[in-house]
Amino acid sequence: MSQREEPAPGVLYVVGTPIGHLGDLSPRARSVLTNVSAIACEDTRHSGHLLNSLGAQSQRFSFHQHNTKARLPQLLQLLNEGQSLALISDAGLPGISDPGEQLVAAARAAGHQVICIPGPCAATTALVSSGLPSGRFCFEGFLASRGKERQQQLAAVASETRTTILYEAPHRLVQLLKELAQLCGDERPLQVARELTKRHEQQVGPTIAAALEHFLEHKPLGECTLVLGGAPISGPDQQSDAHWRAELAALMASGASASDAARQLAQQSGQSRRALYALVHQMVENESE
């Protein structure tokens, strides 16, 4: 489809917007946003600055995690009426760690065409600039904030052999780094990216320990993207303490006591129960500090 034919009636356009540098907005994205019938924004006030600078006059609708259920029928009705609709997030490519995913699925289920106008994405931007392996990688986004679900997710991340990408809010970054250090070991490769594409873009690493030391001294500001190196691939008799800590954490997150987790893992792996229990004891002590 050429630019002259866009935006087309009854089509949902998923439009990537800058994550920092306004120069990253593509001419095609600019054209769609200034000519589309309506725009669904994560935050109309935040996106208003960008849209006003473009001279976009389209009707705007807020669309975020707190009004998704109520807003979906309204947005689908616009498409049913033959109007064109653009979806944008506060920054980056919609549908990744935001409710845009639900709108795309609903539009497709209703028989509407969905076209993505490619644009910046913090996850891939941080990945390719990290220097860590990018041939195979995982995206985890934001982890659960607390409880067993978080412990299970952290254990899975710690044992993952592929590069993993995580998002974290600045006020929770230090805690996440402490948890990763406990499960992965201080020297696991890591880059923390913040202020991507902006004047003060920063990449902090190259290990968990180095990143933790930095952010204990310098208060984190702005959303952070973490790129974590994968767990070493080794035989069952050569696994690191970090691997066994992750396995123990997963068992305890599923409800096992410390002693039961050590006993079960010893039976499954052939490792020393005493050595595994010592690791559990270290984990508990670190949590209490």
Rank of each mutant, 00 (worst) to 15 (best):
M1H: 11
E5V: 14
E6N: 09
P7Q: 07
G10Q: 02
T17A: 12
G20Q: 14
L22Q: 15
D24N: 06
S26G: 03
S26T: 13
S31T: 09
A40T: 09
E42S: 05
T44N: 06
G48V: 10
L50C: 11
L51N: 04
L54E: 10
L54Y: 08
N67H: 11
N67S: 06
K69N: 12
L72T: 00
L75S: 08
L75A: 03
L76Q: 06
L79A: 05
N80M: 13
E81R: 13
E81A: 03
G82C: 04
G82D: 01
I88N: 07
S89T: 07
A91G: 09
D98N: 08
P99S: 02
L103G: 05
A107C: 11
A107G: 09
R108L: 13
G111C: 03
Q113L: 10
I115V: 13
I115L: 15
I117N: 04
G119M: 02
P120V: 07
C121N: 09
G131F: 00
S134K: 08
S134F: 05
C138N: 15
E140C: 08
L143N: 06
A144V: 02
K148E: 14
R150S: 01
Q151I: 08
Q152W: 04
V157T: 07
A158N: 04
E160C: 07
E160M: 10
T161W: 08
L173M: 05
K178V: 03
K178R: 14
A181V: 11
Q182M: 12
R188E: 03
P189D: 04
P189G: 04
L190D: 03
V192A: 01
V192D: 05
A193D: 08
A193Y: 02
T197A: 13
K198F: 12
Q203T: 15
Q203R: 08
G205L: 00
G205K: 00
T207R: 00
A210R: 04
A211Y: 01
A211Q: 02
A211F: 01
L212N: 02
E217D: 11
H218K: 06
P220Y: 07
P220I: 00
L221W: 15
G222R: 00
G222C: 06
C224A: 12
A231E: 03
I233E: 08
P236N: 01
D237E: 12
S240I: 13
A250S: 11
A250R: 13
L251V: 09
S254N: 13
A256V: 13
A256D: 13
A261G: 05
A262P: 05
Q267E: 12
G270R: 04
G270N: 08
Q271F: 00
R274I: 10
R274G: 05
Q282R: 10
V284P: 15
S288W: 12
